[in-house]
Design a protein around this nucleic acid. Structure first.
Lengths: 195, 195
DNA sequence: ATTTGCCTACCTACTAGTAGGAAGCCTAAA
DNA sequence: TTTAGGCTTCCTACTAGTAGGTAGGCAAAT
């Protein structure tokens, strides 16, 4: 139970939800200020520049994501379950609107005009996510759970694209259920023959 | 040969490229002004408000897209070719960086903070695109070219998500070739057994 | 005694949008 | 044929508000 949340954590929390909603240019220090009842200048005390704030934010997000994915690989029974938990996580995020989009996917769409320090961190997240997916697929193949007709890294890229595209469609249509409707068949297809 | 381009067309052209790069909040009237050598106020003459400008822009984009997709269905030999031409179009756009992202996909990611008049138009594009894909898949099934294990509309949603996700990945990794690497196997998979 | 966290007060640059006028063009009446 | 009106397009000059960011002070904790 983490009852206390430091001011800088609160700043990052609200900034993250604002980025998820509207991207890098879709929020301002004034927005954060209004949301957590602190003056604009005080936010600059914690994060001198916007680029720095978002860099720290992405670092934090990456650390959380990598920890979560890592513990999934250690705890979940099989590679198939690991994938299932991964998409279930996003499904519930989207369904209850808590975090209805990946912050790095959001930022990736604005890649071309992101400060370089942010862009490189977003790229790094994409790399580590595709790496995780690749290794899960690889493990699944070795255990005879998956039968891929592509290399694991290629299949991982396809899967990742599906997940991000499904997020986008769910948002575009305003239908949260669309996410799992698109992604579920995609992962089901990896199974060998199946029951 | 359309040698002359009206001022309002030039405004829409540059606005579109700016949106593709940075989204709705990623450009300003000043940016357009600087790019085409006209004063800010003159742009307001053509498009009184930003929401109106982007609405007209999306309308124009939708008309072009629907015309293009429609003529594809009339001209391309088979449903398989139609899909191929569709992804080839985007591949070349991404490869030569002319239009390296769908303007509606870009706007869809910002859906939550778009003016309603813009949001509804973006939704409409997603609907007509998924409709086109559905009917092409349907025709392919009827001609014995495709064997789907999902309903055509479900398969169309999956395909659309793949395309948008692949655009995002290509952008995130800064590797244009990633787009076709993700999308090509996805459409190849639709074919019956194959040669 | 210094650091931390927040404040007031301010800055410059930029945002979308407005007011009003000048120049050119099209049409139609004189 | 000329001229008058109206429309289009662009301009300069401006507004109120917001952007990210800074300077300096004050109080409490270390």
């Amino acid at each position: 139970m983490k009852s206390i949340a430091s001011t800088s954590d609160k700043i990052l929390d609200i900034a993250q939800s604002l980025i998820v909603a509207g991207g890098y240019n879709g929020f301002s220090y004034a927005d954060i200020s209004a949301a957590i009842g602190i003056r604009k200048a005080s936010i600059h005390h914690h994060f001198p520049t916007k680029a720095e704030l978002v860099s720290v934010l992405v670092d934090r997000y990456r650390k959380q994501a990598e920890a979560g994915l890592q513990s999934l690989r250690e705890q979940a029974a099989s590679p198939a379950d690991q994938l299932q938990f991964y998409v279930d996580y996003w499904q519930s995020c989207i369904e209850n609107a808590s975090q209805p989009f990946c912050v790095c996917a959001m930022l990736a769409s604005e890649m071309q005009m992101l400060p370089e320090e942010v862009a490189s961190r977003v790229r790094a997240h994409f790399q580590s996510l595709s790496g995780w997916l690749t290794s899960v697929l690889q493990a699944g193949v070795e255990q005879g759970l998956f039968r891929l007709n592509k290399l694991p890294e290629e299949q991982a890229q396809m899967l990742m694209a599906s997940v991000h595209g499904a997020m986008l469609s769910a948002r575009a249509f305003g239908e949260p259920g669309l996410f799992i409707a698109i992604v579920a068949p995609e992962i089901a297809r990896l199974g060998v023959a199946d029951r």
